[in-house]
Amino acid sequence: MRATPSFRSLTASLGAILLAAAVSGCATPPPASDPEALADFKQTNDPIEPANRVMYAVNNGIDAVLFRPLIAGYRAVVPDPLRERVHSVVTNLGSPVVLANDMMQAKPRRAGDTLMRFAINSTFGVAGIFDVATGWGYPEHSSDFGVTLALWGVDEGPFLFLPVLGPSNPRDLAGYGAGIALDPLTWMGKGSTVTDLGYARLGVTVLDAKSRVQPDIDKALASALDPYATYRSLYRQYRQSAIDSTRNDTRATPPAWRVATPAP
């Protein structure tokens, strides 16, 4: 990509903000004489909160000038039924990564679901445009390497708010990088066409994800007194529930249709 002057000045100002954030530094823990406040501080687990809040503001700016117009355009141009089909395609393309994580999490039933979904939806579902597999007894679930790390016992670490990527933590950030590395499409082929297709897929994936979650996030934050803290709490809870539901998925390996149903 050619760096236009405006892009360069954007990165320059981003750099300046990052520096300011680093200098403005860390949250001051409450004094030891106030044990309840200290316990709250530890539970919040956001030692670089001032810097994170700066990043939250930066991210809101990026959303306002870049992603919101894009989402609005996407929703205006592409009707809802078609957006659902786009979502199916994007989800199907993500299946190999989900499968790899299912396997690393030692969840054979989930891995089986994902494998069958990918096989069925890529063929009968016409390259993933239609989700046939759910009706055939292979429900969808998502997963990522952040969840895998959690099941391996890795601690989430302090809260992070990142430009563009949004709320995160060291574990999920590492998981995000690993997710890219785990994706066969990252490594498939060479040449400008493949690269362009890769960018196109990334763009559509981001649009799809953002247009699905943004309205709900906006509504949640609109009624908050401290939107940053609310976002932090929502992200943590959401990730924890993804981890818990994976851990608690102890379904037997054979799918339901293979298990003889006892007579009532």
């Binding site: 998502s142 990522d144 949004g166 995160s168 979650v213 709900d216 906006d218 509504k219 929502l234 959401y238």
Partner: peptide, 16 residues
């Protein structure tokens, strides 16, 4: 890092 399944349906919680 808000991928796939929608995060933050808490507005929905009030609404639900």
């Amino acid at each position: 890092m808000l991928t796939r399944r929608s995060l933050a349906l808490a507005p929905l919680a009030a609404a639900a």
